[in-house]
Design a protein around this nucleic acid. Structure first.
Length: 680
DNA sequence: TGGGTCACGGTTTTT
DNA sequence: CCGTGACCCA
């Protein structure tokens, strides 16, 4: 199995004990190296698969690696299976076994980002606090990532704003506990908490996972780093793979320092660099290399193509976004006529808003495309409704889920009725479901609402009886809960009903094939996103983030303009923007096309835009820097003129489209147009 | 309670 | 420009 690898890949694959950092540039065979190492450990060295742990960020990556590793080893020879999963799935599995150490029951539910936001919103309303929701949500996430509980945050908070957040955090945590919910951060934070408190369990767990591998290490956050530290504490057999130049998730907590400082944390770490790129032509890699060299915060490496030079990068300059879309559509048609498969073409952009003009242009040109990303299947309201029903059927005391569906379809229970029910439930110290069964509720609800609620209770209990036979359960569900009718009346009802049917089909298939219980199915899908979105015969259009890990023969990047890409504004990190461009460039196998416009229509306004600095930094457009600097001379700047030499700017005046500078060249004063001098 | 209207605000996304 | 959510009235 090692014959397939190059020297550096092989060196990494056969390293057995001790920490190792594999710096794997884009397209350098990262997955191949990692899977071969796993196969080597199991198939050649003789490590029991059960003693390995391989962690990834996405289910897709986990599945792909599992398949490839098992192919190398041959499943026939295995008695146990290696654990290969996402960080969060690992957290889930761990908590199912050990959350009782925190005095919690392991029938907890996982809430997603939307649920979290909805809960926070409710809490903020109750507390009468008005802060931006996204700010509160990310603050709380940060707190969990640095492992501070509400009490500690309360003590630390000095500014009023943060005291308020601390209050919300406290309420939020209580709410999660009351409903036995965990959020995505908890899936990492709680295992860490348990492992750091329980010495014996820590040793036992670390000894179980003798060989740990981590994919996309540049995207790990603080908590993942610390968790890994505990897991590897007994043996330090931790092998991480990543590319510091492809760290593009800083805004959601990824800490690039984890990869930059890996040697400091593990001084005896072996470092292997994979720099031979099997994906792209040298022409593309030169641009990517040149661009990324403008970053300071990096370990430094240079990609060398295995494929040779290839075609020049093409630049499209258009008047506005509709011309841009036309130009690209035209070029794509040319490619298709030459026999290029549509799924070998991708159009990438920095922000999703740019997809609209593209879609319009493609529709006009009759080009079939597939928009990757957007609203995810499990985040659609209709799907979350069914899941909430299933959660209530699985656990009738799940108030959180019950509240979502109590009035879906409409049963005459509005916000004020709900409030009354909650008050009563608190008074009686009962779950909402049990409260609904009380005599007293009759007085709280209208006659119609009360009858419908009794009907609702009866149906849930009826469905509950079928928990063992999930095929029947979902059939009965469809029959008794008229969700389809509820959604049919909406303007996008048709699509929603299709989604509902798709879910039913998926539910039957998964539970039957994998013999899952209702509980297992529910916790599994909480950590699943849409699987592989790419289709066979359409052009893919998507954000650059969504393109990570993918590759295409032809890649178009649109919107290469200042303020669109790089995206400027507060909280922006120019180096991360550059890494994003690096990721985008390196998706291309053979041809890269870069596009910019003079003006763009955005948020209801047309605005003039400047071409992106990345075009010049990557060396694909020469001299744009000089032009852009035209306006940026100010009094006191030193400048250089071809004839007069070096002088100092005394005055800047506008002269039509240009700037006229009054410059003092060693006592000789001249008025010169700004384009004739260069900054010194 | 539920349908309708108006003001507002708006990166990137996986789990 | 377009989607979401607050607010108002039947």
């Amino acid at each position: 199995m090692l014959d397939e690898l190059n020297a550096a890949q092989k060196e990494a694959a056969i390293h057995i004990d001790g920490p190792m950092l594999i710096l794997a540039g884009a397209g350098s065979g990262k997955t191949k190296t990692l899977t071969t190492r796993l196969a080597y450990l199991i198939g050649e060295v003789g490590i029991d698969p059960i003693n390995t742990l391989t962690l990834t960020f996405t289910n897709k990556a986990a599945n792909e690696m599992r398949q490839r590793a098992l192919n190398l080893i041959g499943t026939k020879n295995l008695n146990t299976m290696p654990l290969l999963c996402t960080f969060h799935k690992f957290g889930l599995l761990f908590l199912k076994l050990h959350i009782n150490k925190l005095n919690r029951n392991n029938n907890f539910n996982i809430i997603d980002t939307d649920d979290k936001k909805a809960l926070l919103k409710k809490i903020m309303k109750e507390l009468d606090i008005d802060l931006p929701l996204s700010f509160v949500a990310s603050e709380i996430s940060t707190y969990k990532n640095i492992l501070l509980d509400p009490q500690e945050i309360k003590q630390k908070a000095e500014i009023d704003e943060y005291k308020k957040v601390a209050k919300i955090y406290e309420n939020y945590q209580n709410n999660l506990l009351e409903n036995n919910l965990v959020d995505f951060d908890d899936l990492l934070a709680l295992p860490y908490q348990i492992l750091s408190q329980d010495e014996k369990l820590r040793i036992q767990t670390s000894q179980k996972y003798q060989y740990i591998m981590v994919d996309e290490y540049q995207d790990t956050n603080e908590l993942q780093f610390k968790l890994l530290e505990l897991l590897a504490s007994e043996h330090q057999n931790i092998c991480v793979v990543g590319d510091d130049d492809q760290s593009i998730y800083g805004w959601r907590g990824a800490n690039i320092k984890n990869i930059l400082d890996f040697n400091k944390h593990y001084p005896n770490a072996k470092v292997v660099k994979l720099q031979i790129n099997y994906r792209s032509t040298q022409e593309i890699l030169d641009a990517a290399n040149k661009l990324i060299e403008h970053n300071r915060n990096r370990l430094g490496k240079k990609l060398i193509s295995h494929k040779g030079n290839g075609d020049k990068i093409e630049i499209f300059h258009s008047l506005d976004e509709s011309f841009e879309a036309n130009t690209i559509a035209h070029k794509i048609k040319e490619l298709l006529n030459r026999g290029t498969a549509p799924n070998e073409i991708a159009v990438l952009y920095r922000i999703n808003a740019l997809s609209r003009s593209l879609e319009e242009g493609f529709n006009k040109a009759n080009l079939a495309y597939k928009l990757v990303g957007g609203i995810r299947f499990y985040e659609r309201a209709e799907i979350k409704d069914i899941i909430s029903y299933l959660r209530v059927i699985s656990n009738k005391n799940d108030d959180f889920s019950l509240l979502r569906i109590i009035n879906k379809p409409k049963r005459g229970i509005g916000p004020s009725s709900v409030q009354k029910l909650i008050t009563l439930a608190k008074e009686k110290n009962l779950s909402l479901f049990n409260t609904l069964k009380l005599e007293e509720t009759q007085a709280l609800l209208s006659k119609k609402a009360y009858t419908q609620i009794q009907d609702f209770i009866a149906k849930i209990e009826l469905l509950e009886k079928e928990k063992e036979d999930l095929n029947t359960l979902i059939e009965l569900f469809n029959e008794h809960i008229p969700l389809k009718e509820y959604y049919a009346n909406m303007n996008d009802g048709f699509e929603r009903i299709l989604n509902i049917d798709e879910f039913y089909g998926y539910f039957k298939e998964r539970t039957l094939q994998e013999k899952l219980s209702l509980e297992q199915f529910l916790s599994d899908i909480a950590l699943e996103s849409d699987q592989d979105n790419l289709t066979q015969n359409a052009i893919n259009i998507m954000s650059i983030h969504a393109s990570k890990g993918l590759e295409f023969e032809h890649v178009f990047i649109i919107g290469l303009e200042e303020e669109f890409f790089p995206l400027l504004g507060d909280g922006c990190d120019i180096e991360e923007e550059r890494r994003l461009a690096y990721v985008a460039f390196t998706r291309a196998k053979n041809n890269l096309y870069l596009s910019y416009v003079d003006s763009r229509f955005y948020r209801g306004k047309r605005q003039k835009v400047q071409k992106s600095r990345f075009l010049e930094e990557s060396g694909v457009l020469k001299g744009s820097l000089k032009q852009d600097k035209k306006a940026s001379f100010k009094r006191g700047d030193l400048v250089k003129h071809k004839i007069f030499g070096i002088g100092r700017v005394q005055e800047v005046n506008k002269s039509g489209k240009n700037y006229k500078l009054k410059i003092n060249f060693g006592g000789m004063k001249k008025e010169i147009l700004s384009s004739f001098v260069e900054p010194v």
